[in-house]
């Protein structure tokens, strides 16, 4: 920054709206980018495109004819691409020729269990992280909590799941070992998925609290006679949270990635299983559909996160003028 700060006011009025428009544009760009990269990457797979789109196994010549029509394979690549984009814009994710089912249906049926799992895992992760950050900052407990967080972040998700099953499922018998549909069956998978996330979130929160604790305003707050509890709850925790909330998109992503493993470990139905089956069976239309869906999911989450971050840290809203 060379010339000094822009004095606010005149430009400030329409900023929130144009920022929202900018972000929506960015969101469309991410989804479009993911869809495009996915499309061309799949077209790079050597071999007859029809065979590629079928995946493992064989289908009748009638279905092959159907595929050529669905994807406009007789047309040049550019036309195929535009055709594909046009379908996406209409919300049509295509058909799985292996499963003889529209991709949207395949995904839609399995969306609910995965979202339940991710949601509960998120709740557990936030609670665990907050507990670690607030109570793990004494002289005694810091090294211990730090080590705990390090192990939580480092241990492979699927191994955590296996250990939890061994101990709480087979050993103590507290929770059902196989998916039974009840809430009890959701607890172990959700904890499994939550532990690495809680480790990351806890570290970031703790670092945020430590970083905020040496900011100059802390002196001012203490000079007002504020207690330590007040200082943390009213002031520094908010700084730490504003810092951590930008991680939400990343966390949602890791939860979705992790659900592939957790659903396998616990033999649960869900999006992760759909994805894994599609990958092993090379069911390309489903793979493409999941890529697009994931892009939409992250974009929406990041949009929400951006808006929340603005409320938590008002400086963000004007930051663009200073960058």
């Amino acid at each position: 920054m060379t010339g000094g700060a822009v004095t606010g006011g005149a430009v400030g009025q329409n900023r929130p709206v144009s920022r929202l428009v900018g972000r929506l544009g960015g969101m469309v760009l991410v989804v479009w980018g993911a869809a495009t990269v996915g499309f061309f990457a799949l077209r790079l797979i050597p071999g007859d495109p029809v065979t590629v789109l079928v995946g493992l196994g064989s289908v009748s010549e009638q279905v092959r004819e159907q595929i050529r029509a669905d994807w406009g394979l007789a047309d040049p690549l550019a036309v195929q691409y535009l055709f594909y984009l046009g379908r996406l814009v209409r919300g049509d994710l295509g058909t799985s020729y292996r499963m003889q089912q529209p991709v949207a249906d395949l995904i839609g049926q399995q969306l609910a269990p995965t979202l339940q799992l991710m949601g509960l895992a998120m709740v557990f992760a936030v609670l665990l992280a907050l507990a670690a950050a607030l109570f793990g900052r004494g002289r005694r407990s810091t090294p211990f909590v730090g080590l705990l967080e390090l192990v939580a972040v480092s241990a492979p998700t699927f191994w955590i799941g296996l250990v939890l099953i061994t101990v709480f499922g087979f050993g103590l018998g507290w929770f059902p070992v196989v998916a039974s549909g009840g809430f009890g069956a959701l607890v172990l998978p959700a904890i499994t998925l939550a532990i690495p996330t809680a480790g990351i979130l806890g570290q970031v929160l703790r670092q945020g609290l430590d970083a905020a604790a040496i900011l100059p305003f802390v002196d001012t707050v203490r000079a007002r006679g504020a207690s330590h509890t007040r200082l943390v709850l009213r002031h520094t925790l908010r700084h730490a949270a504003a810092n951590s909330v930008t991680l939400t998109g990343y966390i949602a992503g890791s939860l979705l990635g992790g659900s592939v493993l957790v659903e396998t470990v616990f033999a649960r139905p869900g999006l992760g299983r759909v994805a894994l089956n599609a990958i092993t069976d090379r069911d390309i239309p489903v793979v493409l559909g999941i890529i697009v869906l994931a892009a939409v999911l992250f974009s929406v989450i990041n949009l929400i996160v951006d808006l929340v971050a603005d409320r938590l840290d008002p400086r963000m809203a004007t930051a663009e003028a200073y960058s």
Binding site: F217, G225, A242
Partner: peptide, 25 residues
């Protein structure tokens, strides 16, 4: 006991309010 003194009997003004006031409030 210090907490009862700070703010009520002695006030502190430091260098730059941009960083000396909580920027998020």
């Amino acid at each position: 006991q210090w907490r009862a003194v700070r703010g009520a009997r002695v006030g502190l003004v430091s260098q730059d309010a941009l960083v000396s006031l909580d920027p998020l409030r």
